[in-house]
Design a protein around this nucleic acid. Structure first.
Length: 503
RNA sequence: GGGUUCGUGGUCUAGUUUGGUAGGAUCUGCGCCUGGGGCGCGCAAGAUCGGGGGUUCGAAUCCCUCCGAACCCA
């Protein structure tokens, strides 16, 4: 931490007495299950496999996350809509690749009451086939374009057996944005805008480092021309796919007859993109990336509670102290912060552990001393530093430390991500590294279908996947040197790809 | 996809091998006590032992089946 980022020269750091018996780094999977229960994020006892109940603490944070995302989409000219959750089978089957890709995962409604429905209804696994028949009606003229709409809601996919709260469920909540353009160039530009939005929100607000990849041909969205997907790295060294954006070209436009009349009166086919950040999954990634052995750590802007005030009363001074706490709370609420005073009659130490486990970024400790001296003692969750400052500095201090805390989380996470990236020159070396929580950047023969065989070999032998080509390398046209070879098939390499285990 | 372990008050767990009174801890509520990093005491409340079926005089326990969960490997 640089000097001006440090909170105070007199800051003391509270030593780490770990709450869990579970080491996050060594035993991430158990840590995750435990924190979800302990912090009351989700209740897994809802008795349908792959469906969980999101509790208040997680729901508040996810609502905030939706807010930030939707605000960003609005800023870039997208408008909200709400489509039905059911899709008639005949709509669903219009685009050939799409049907093939999604059919194994679809939940079907076949009956209503005692009656068998004439046509089955799909519970949407994604909404292309719900929205595009209407798009076909809405888009008539070049004046109707671009059409940029999004909706927030849940979708249903019949996932295999390893479902986990937040990370993989049979229902998940997300935003899906569906856009229509006159030209392929505009559509491509939209995928760039999606990536920019993802970067603004994911990295700056949620503090989650991402790399955007162009997915290989064999691993793209069913019906897409190209898929670009953001991956982050989980503490156990596995990739987690976060927002993905798809260049649909005119595949769906042709299937759903989305055409427009141009300035010359000619009928033209439209070009499309779609984009889907899954908020529930991003939330899972966020708590995994930032948490520690004391529990959660929320980035300041999305924390369900941002500031917890702990009164430390001596018997005769309860009233005094409470009044001082309430005064502080009023000021902070006025500033728009989510604040709580913990007036329960547990010991202060008990409250410290509890709210740290819950991930509250800042804690104010108010006792006799603070009231007497008109001061405030503050503890920050990320660095475990404790400082005392004058009451009059309250608003400035909170604003500064809140922003600083998120930045610090982001930097730490980015550093870990960068340190996990390495390279490999042989299959054995690759195996050793991906089994040691690393991801490898290796020279690769082809992202087209002729590279699939090499990817299958990596999958079969190492249980790892080829994530694709880093978008930054596409932009800067970074390619392997003359003579560098794909070490799976030995053909000369056309690009670098990242390989690692995945969720 | 394969494997392992498992389901008993709200939560965690003993009891299952060898069928016979469901025991404890914690949480919750009330009363006291206490308070600058996980106090303590007392009282009370809380379970058709995951669901269904079977064997038996008798099932948490044995058998069948369904539902659900965790972890490991692909």
């Amino acid at each position: 931490m640089s000097k001006n980022e440090s909170m105070n020269e007199n800051a003391s750091t509270v030593s780490e007495i770990e709450t869990f018996n579970i080491d996050k780094e060594k035993n991430f999977s158990e840590w995750f299950t435990e924190i979800v229960k302990r912090a009351e994020l989700a209740d897994m006892r809802y008795n349908v496999k792959g469906f969980v109940v999101y509790r208040a603490f997680a729901t508040i944070a996810m609502k905030k996350m939706f807010d930030y995302y939707e605000r960003e989409l609005d800023k870039f000219g997208h408008e909200p809509v709400i489509f039905p959750m059911v899709i008639p089978e005949s709509n669903f089957q219009v685009e050939k690749d799409h049907v093939e890709g999604f059919t194994p995962e679809v939940f079907w409604i076949e009956r209503a009451g005692e009656e068998v429905l004439e046509e089955r209804l799909a519970l949407r696994p994604t909404s292309e086939t719900a929205m595009y028949p209407l798009y076909s009606l809405w888009v008539r003229s070049w004046r109707d374009l671009p059409l940029k709409l999004y909706q927030s809601g849940s979708v249903f996919r019949y996932e295999g057996k390893s479902t986990r709260p937040f990370l993989r469920g049979r229902e998940f909540i997300w935003i899906e944005s569906h856009n229509v353009f006159k030209t392929m160039e505009e559509a491509i530009a939209q995928t760039r805008e999606d990536m920019q939005i993802a970067y603004n929100v994911m990295t700056k607000i949620f503090g989650i480092p991402i790399i955007y990849f162009q997915r290989p041909e064999w691993d793209k969205f069913a019906g897409a021309v190209h898929t670009y997907a953001a991956d982050t790295l989980m503490p156990d060294g596995k990739f987690l796919q976060l927002p993905s954006t798809h260049l649909l070209g005119s595949n769906f436009a042709e299937a759903f007859n989305i055409t427009y009349t141009d300035q010359n009166g000619d009928e033209k086919i439209a070009y499309q993109t779609c984009y889907g950040p899954a908020i529930s999954r991003i939330f899972g990634g966020m708590i995994a990336v930032h948490g520690d052995n004391n529990g959660l750590i929320f980035p300041f802007d999305v924390a369900p509670k941002q500031i917890i005030i702990i009164p430390i009363p001596k018997k005769k001074d309860i009233k005094h102290i409470e009044e001082y706490c309430i005064e502080i709370e009023k000021i902070l609420v006025n500033e728009g912060y989510r604040v709580k005073i913990d007036l329960s009659d547990d010991r202060p130490g008990d409250k410290y552990y509890f709210w740290e486990m819950k991930g509250v970024p800042l804690r104010l400790e108010i006792g006799n001393k603070e009231v007497r001296e008109k001061k405030i003692t503050l503890f920050r969750r990320d660095s475990r530093e404790k400082i005392t400052f004058p009451f009059d500095d309250l608003v400035n201090t909170i604003a500064e430390l809140g922003a600083n805390l998120t930045k610090n989380l982001r930097n730490k996470a980015q550093k870990r991500f960068n340190e996990s990236i390495t390279d490999a020159e042989t299959l054995d070396e690759l195996e050793e590294k991906v089994n040691d929580k690393k991801i490898c950047k290796i020279p690769w023969c082809s992202l087209d279908l002729d590279g699939e065989e090499c990817a299958m070999e990596i999958k079969d032998q190492l249980a790892a996947t080829v994530r694709g080509r880093d978008m930054r390398e596409i932009d800067e046209d970074i390619r392997p040197k003359e003579g560098e070879k794909c070490f799976i098939c030995g053909k000369s390499a056309t690009c670098y790809v990242y390989v690692g285990k995945q969720y």
